[in-house]
Write a protein that binds this DNA or RNA. Structure first.
Length: 155
DNA sequence: GCCAACGTTGGC
DNA sequence: GCCAACGTTGGC
């Protein structure tokens, strides 16, 4: 059991989009960063919990929780020249990029803003804090529970 | 819209 | 395998 943080731009795909999706599920696609991919490929497991973080928006913040419901599969967009996620260098025999399926769990009662995270000395490890453009990052168990409490989730 | 940070590419 | 140039991300 592990904990993660996934970034998304709410203009493209938000926690609300996920909550309203069929089965409240989506295939998390378009990961095009090796470090992020390696986390998903090598460490993410069905059952792991995921903070959904809104980036590139007015108030960047952790806004909700999802759960991984299906393990890593080839991301088909890498082979589609029409897709913004097309990767001409990916060999169909050895696909370079993967995605996995997550399901909505809940909105946070109080989103935890990037500003609050940066200002909080109790949060030290979270990769979000050290800048970084990583779109998928691990969250330690301790900081997961700390952030949950901070967001008003009581259990 | 700007720009800093940082990942990726490609020439050597 | 180094590193400069380039592209992208994402906060502000």
């Amino acid at each position: 059991m592990a904990y993660w943080l996934f970034k998304t731009e709410p203009d493209t795909f938000s926690i609300d989009t996920l909550a309203k999706a069929p089965q409240q599920s989506t295939f998390w696609e378009g990961i095009r960063n090796y470090q992020a991919r390696n986390f998903l490929r090598d460490q993410a497991q069905v059952g792991d919990l995921v903070f959904i973080y809104h980036s590139s928006c007015k108030v960047p913040a952790i806004v909700g929780i999802a759960q991984i419901t299906e393990g890593a599969k080839t991301d088909p967009h890498q082979f589609n020249p029409e897709s913004p996620y097309f990767d001409p260098k990916s060999d169909p025999e050895k696909p370079r990029w993967i995605g996995l399926t997550i399901q909505y769990r809940q909105h946070l009662p109080k989103p935890v803003t990037l500003q609050a995270i940066k200002a909080d000395d109790a949060i030290q490890e979270l990769a979000l804090k050290k800048a970084g453009r990583l779109s998928v990052m691990p969250v330690s168990e301790q900081e997961w529970h700390y952030l949950l409490a901070k967001s008003g989730v009581t259990r």
